[in-house]
Design a protein around this nucleic acid. Structure first.
Lengths: 345, 345
DNA sequence: CCCGCATCTGACAACGTTGTCCAGGCCCTA
DNA sequence: TAGGGCCTGGACAACGTTGTCAGATGCGGG
């Protein structure tokens, strides 16, 4: 009978609460709270009794209630394009490590390059009251974030700038990297150089194209319409674009690829191609050094991007930073052979 | 004066609450709740007034409070080894997609192959009251999860089984895949075959080694001590292990590598090696088809692993499933050349 | 022996939301 | 026109935790 009553106390499937622990230990609610949070002012004997009750009941503090009371969630959100892209994996991991160092958890979501989905995710994270947000934007209008930022959600944009609002942003030197990569091809004698990149509405794609154009212009080479192709990065489209550039009356002798996925596909196309074609790609790719020839790339450090952004975010949470800033990280040209091929006669 | 008073109502840095919205719209608290949640029983006119107040104040529902009240967080946790590993990126993404389809967010954490950190992460997620957990275990004792599971946290283990508890688990056929991969090498005339794998305490590593031994035994080949090497997968150790196998009085003529990271390093070692050495690796790797020779692999579909696990998890949350089950997904041998090299004489 | 103080403990309110329940107003019918 | 039913809106409690504050307990000094 007493057994039954006791069992009914902690309803099946319901977690024990501090109240249950307090009842079992024969102490007050607040004392349990003190023990759970390691606050001082509890005699060792009381603490032991409470701890025993906690272990016996399998009590675990409910962080939702805690958050509600304290206002901080100790979690940050990361919205990126696609976690399965090898560019974003290390970035996410780097953000997680910084968060961990600050005792925070990371919630991340993939926008799949869809602005609506980005907004949906960001607002869902805000509803969870994340302390901060790291966003790799898919859209180009982030005014919807203004009330959140004003309400104290620290926000840092990475890889691409925010649209229509003033916020911290951490970028790679997309323009300079692409310019130098293309200049590298020009220095090896190429003039007919193709550019295959992501959709033009994506900031990085536009910047890299600008770098390409600038390098060409600096060398006095007029860019022909047929040499540039921007669009989705799925293999089919990229393959068609590459094949188009490589055929026709005056084919390109070199290609600059706008990101890792494009590079991978173009490497495949070139492997099937009879003439050697020079290649420089934006983003490093695994095993690039073992291909024949090795793939020359403009490498950006995605982990460093993530780390820098997360550091900024936590500085902002500490109240250290004031004005939004724009940080630009350098890229690095890694020569491995493919960019040093001379133009086929 | 009135202005000042109004401003003080929503203290700076504090979010507006339903109370604030209700006051501004001149309605009751519950009416706001109804509008926010799309519940019926509100006249269009009232709804409009409430919506205007929401927009004007930039109100966003506090999900912590909601969770506290409702008991469900609509979020699941994923604990894996390292998000930056190309094997786990797609897995995480797949879990996220399933979660999204069920209206849930994904919180993930990297255990860095450290059992303590795994436990710390898992318990932190439980404190947030995630509805479910997908765990790629680093440790081999998960009894600490028992109270959580009993309390209703749906839990599915992936890639490796749980230790000391009975729980759902989704695995690849590590044993069969490795056995078939090694048999493939044997079929091409190899007898002196090396195995380089991850630390023996990791289930997948042990199973793959067992597959290797079984294949060798089936062919009547006694395995020499020097042919197997298990340990951390950092390039230095793997490189030393490979070089040791390839030198000495009777070097191996083929190597079976136990996961993607080992394969990458061994490919590098073999590229510098004079004699051709056959290679079959567990896990597919990007660009493996473009190397000379292409790398033959035993591929597992990490996205499918994640999807399967997440599906199971949500089935369990729906209360559809009863007993824990063990699901094993097949692997696929992809021949590309490196596994078909004949033994060097 | 009693008072005062320090130390430890517990009652209570509050965080922002949702579920329950009731009040009031409206319309329809007899 | 009165009565009944239906529909909308609001007051209130509860979720589990933490901060505040006051009460209890014990000990030492006067």
């Amino acid at each position: 009978m007493a057994e039954t009553a006791r069992r009914t106390d902690n309803r099946y499937g319901n977690r024990p609460t501090m109240k249950d622990v307090a009842a079992r230990a024969g102490v007050g609610l607040k004392t349990v709270s003190r023990v759970v949070n390691g606050e001082p002012g509890v005699t060792p004997d009381t603490e032991r009794r409470v701890q025993e009750a906690i272990d016996a009941l399998g009590f675990r503090r409910n962080d939702s209630a805690r958050v509600l009371r304290k206002g901080r969630t100790a979690s940050i959100g990361l919205v990126l394009e696609d976690l399965s892209d090898p560019f974003y994996g290390p970035l996410s991991r780097a953000v997680e490590e910084v968060a961990r160092a600050h005792g925070a958890l990371l919630i991340n979501g993939s926008s799949a390059e869809d602005p609506d989905r980005e907004q949906e995710l960001v607002l869902a994270l805000c509803a969870r009251r994340v302390d901060g947000l790291v966003v790799i934007p898919a859209g180009d209008d982030h005014r919807y974030l203004e009330p959140e930022i004003k309400a104290g959600v620290a926000t840092v944009f990475v890889d691409r700038p925010a649209g229509q609002i003033d916020a911290d942003v951490v970028l790679s030197d997309n323009f300079g990297g692409a310019r130098d990569g293309v200049a590298h091809l020009i220095a090896h004698g190429h003039r007919r150089i193709g550019f295959i990149g992501d959709m033009p509405r994506i900031h990085t794609a536009a910047e890299r194209l600008r770098g390409y154009r600038t390098a060409m212009e600096a060398a006095g080479i007029p860019v022909e319409e047929a040499w540039t192709s921007l669009g989705v990065t799925d293999p089919q489209r990229v393959r068609r674009a590459a094949e188009a550039m490589l055929s026709g009356p005056s084919p390109v002798t070199a290609i600059f690829t706008g990101n890792n996925r494009v590079t991978v596909t173009v490497v495949r196309v070139l492997a099937e191609h009879s003439r050697p074609v020079a290649l420089v790609g934006f983003d490093d790719i695994e095993l690039a050094d073992l291909l024949q020839p090795g793939v020359t790339v403009v490498a950006q450090d995605s982990a460093q991007l993530g780390r820098t952004a997360a550091d900024r975010l936590f500085h902002r949470l500490d109240g250290t930073l004031a004005l939004p800033e724009r940080v630009e990280l350098p890229t690095r040209l890694i020569t491995r052979g493919s960019g040093e091929l001379p133009p086929a006669s």
